[in-house]
Lab assay of single mutants.
Amino acid sequence: IRCIGVSNRDFVEGMSGGTWVDVVLEHGGCVTVMAQDKPTVDIELVTTTVSNMAEVRSYCYEASISDMASDSRCPTQGEAYLDKQSDTQYVCKRTLVDRGWGNGCGLFGKGSLVTCAKFTCSKKMTGKSIQPENLEYRIMLSVHGSQHSGMIVNDTGYETDENRAKVEVTPNSPRAEATLGGFGSLGLDCEPRTGLDFSDLYYLTMNNKHWLVHKEWFHDIPLPWHAGADTGTPHWNNKEALVEFKDAHAKRQTVVVLGSQEGAVHTALAGALEAEMDGAKGKLFSGHLKCRLKMDKLRLKGVSYSLCTAAFTFTKVPAETLHGTVTVEVQYAGTDGPCKIPVQMAVDMQTLTPVGRLITANPVITESTENSKMMLELDPPFGDSYIVIGVGDKKITHHWHRSGSTIGKAFEATVRGAKRMAVLGDTAWDFGSVGGVFNSLGKGIHQIFGAAFKSLFGGMSWFSQILIGTLLVWLGLNTKNGSISLTCLALGGVMIFLSTAVSA
């Protein structure tokens, strides 16, 4: 259960009878995928790494000078000259100064003066180019299975845990398959586009800190620079940016070097996208990844198990997540596992009318040892309800109150669905055939309105939902006002479609 501690969480529900669903994975976010007769899966884009970055340009932001020398000439005696002028490691300046009897010249006039100092770069920052084909995306998957609280967001041991898996995709191999043991396998067909235009970005490294910066900004930095990788004795261009020549006297000129420019660069980098280094690879934390999940090989585990009949206890007080759902960790005293956990939410304890829904599909106890633990997640209705676990006299209950409203949740879900469709863009549509167009249209309606429909009408039977949709269509056909007619027709059509397409 990876997503319960992530604030940016998206719930995606598969269409009834569908074998695939489109998701948008982004750094700092987590996606929970639910479908009829399929286990619930949490998917998170953990890291995006980039390798084989080529150094484009380096800037010196802290330097020192040494070996200063000057040469001067009297008027009419030609130009002052130093051998160091031809050495690229030196920074030199030529000027004219007033000369006369007082400073060793027989004539009054302008004399030539040249001053040089050896330039040494102490600290530099480097910009590297990123090729999209060198990106690698690491995705962690977790099935809502027989897990306890100690396994949440624990990325170790996934090789031997059938509840978890790690997959890596690249532009050259965008397809992967996550093996989930008894739950089958989940196929991923990803489109490795981060949403960032790397043709316009460089990877900047300064003092063990890293950013993504725009090329134009990078090339306009007014500091000494050299092109390409460091060859040991780089040729620094624009050395004068960190060196200041003071007022010249008759035979000498003082040279000083400016202080470190790291603070000024940090100020200019305010708002830039931060990154990290992992050995020789860069780690990015921006952008998104679009994936199509193929769920035809994914299956529920323990459908044929019998119900657990022994007593359950709450190991922890049920807690609310950031998303309005409830996490419950229970301990089973029996030894008759594997068995299914009898769990439901009810409005009252007399009729036990089921409300809400299970995020953890078909929760089971897989071990036959005593005191096995299991964590599950529920989506309670707004208002008061009861969490009921167990059967008969051994069942345990917990009162729950959820604040908020169904309308607010439906609106929030619609906005999130619209954002998801905007990110998917043209990849969500198939114009290759008439059937493809209608299929894409259905998927689009489901992406945007599916979660809201589930919130508003999830407790009704599909037949009642179709009746309401048919009534809206009838009202649309018999209303003389054009805008009201079109609105009723659209709402009725969407409702009829979703009542037959969205899983219960």
Rank of each mutant, 00 (worst) to 15 (best):
T170Y: 06
D83N: 11
L82H: 14
G78Q: 04
W20N: 06
P234F: 12
V167L: 13
G287I: 04
N371C: 02
G493I: 04
I468H: 10
A250F: 08
G390L: 02
K166P: 13
G450F: 10
S304H: 08
Q331C: 09
L352Y: 14
L188W: 09
R57A: 12
V494I: 13
T160N: 00
T160D: 15
V24N: 07
G392S: 11
V434A: 11
V31W: 07
S464R: 11
S440M: 11
G5H: 04
D83V: 12
V41S: 00
M53Q: 03
N362K: 11
R416P: 08
G145R: 08
Y332N: 12
K239N: 10
S129H: 01
S149K: 00
A501I: 09
K395Y: 02
A310R: 03
K124L: 11
P171A: 03
I4W: 12
S385A: 13
V303I: 13
W211R: 10
T414K: 03
Y202A: 07
S306L: 00
Q131C: 06
H144M: 10
R94G: 12
E216D: 14
K395T: 09
H446D: 09
T126F: 02
V167E: 04
D336R: 12
A241N: 10
V257Y: 06
L204M: 06
R9T: 07
Y137L: 01
C116G: 05
M125T: 12
F312I: 12
Y305D: 05
P363D: 04
G482M: 13
D426E: 13
G111H: 04
R357N: 06
H323K: 05
A272N: 14
E367A: 09
L45T: 06
G492Y: 03
L258F: 08
G408R: 08
I341M: 10
E26M: 10
G29E: 06
G187N: 14
F382N: 07
T406P: 02
G383S: 01
W236P: 02
S72C: 09
S372C: 15
A270T: 14
T156Q: 11
Y90S: 08
S64C: 03
L471P: 11
I43A: 01
E62F: 13
N371R: 07
H210T: 01
M345T: 02
Y305N: 07
G263T: 10
Q331S: 14
A241W: 13
D220I: 07
D10R: 00
R9F: 07
R402Y: 11
T321A: 12
H288V: 05
G450D: 07
I359S: 01
M140G: 15
A248C: 04
D296Q: 13
K209Q: 11
Y158I: 02
G145L: 03
V56L: 00
Y332W: 06
D155W: 04
Y202E: 07
H266W: 13
E329Y: 12
R175Y: 11
V328K: 03
T231Y: 04
L477E: 01
L307H: 00
M460L: 11
H144S: 04
D230L: 14
K38L: 04
K297R: 15
T470G: 13
A410E: 03
L477Y: 02
V56R: 01
D278R: 06
V56H: 03
L258W: 08
P342C: 10
I4G: 07
P39L: 11
W20T: 02
T160W: 11
D384E: 12
V343W: 10
G150T: 13
K294A: 05
V330T: 05
K301Q: 13
T160V: 15
K480A: 14
E262Y: 09
A241M: 10
S66Q: 01
S440G: 01
T487P: 12
K290T: 12
D98T: 04
G102W: 07
K373T: 00
F108Y: 10
T49S: 15
Q350N: 14
D71V: 08
D10E: 07
Y386T: 14
I152T: 12
L188Q: 03
C190T: 05
T115M: 11
D278V: 00
H446W: 11
I387L: 02
S66H: 08
M421E: 08
A428C: 02
R292C: 05
F198D: 06
K128D: 01
K394M: 10
C3F: 08
T205E: 11
V326Q: 04
V255P: 08
H27Q: 07
Y81R: 05
C190P: 04
T397C: 05
A117V: 15
T231V: 12
S122P: 04
L113G: 00
D67L: 13
C190S: 11
L358F: 11
I130C: 06
V391Q: 02
P174L: 10
G232W: 00
C121R: 10
S86V: 02
K301W: 11
G442M: 13
V473S: 00
S112V: 14
E367V: 04
I221N: 08
M151V: 14
L258P: 10
T126N: 12
P318Y: 06
L307F: 15
A410K: 10
E329N: 10
S485K: 04
W101V: 03
A451E: 15
P342S: 12
E162N: 03
W462A: 07
T170Q: 06
E162D: 13
T156W: 07
D278M: 02
E370I: 04
E412L: 09
Y203S: 07
E162S: 14
V23P: 01
L223I: 11
V23T: 12
D197H: 09
N8S: 06
S403D: 12
T32D: 04
L201H: 02
P354L: 00
Y59Q: 06
A176L: 03
N103A: 02
E370F: 06
K251F: 05
E216W: 10
L467D: 04
C74N: 09
M151K: 04
G28F: 02
F497M: 12
G78A: 02
A248E: 01
A410R: 01
E177L: 03
G279P: 00
G408M: 11
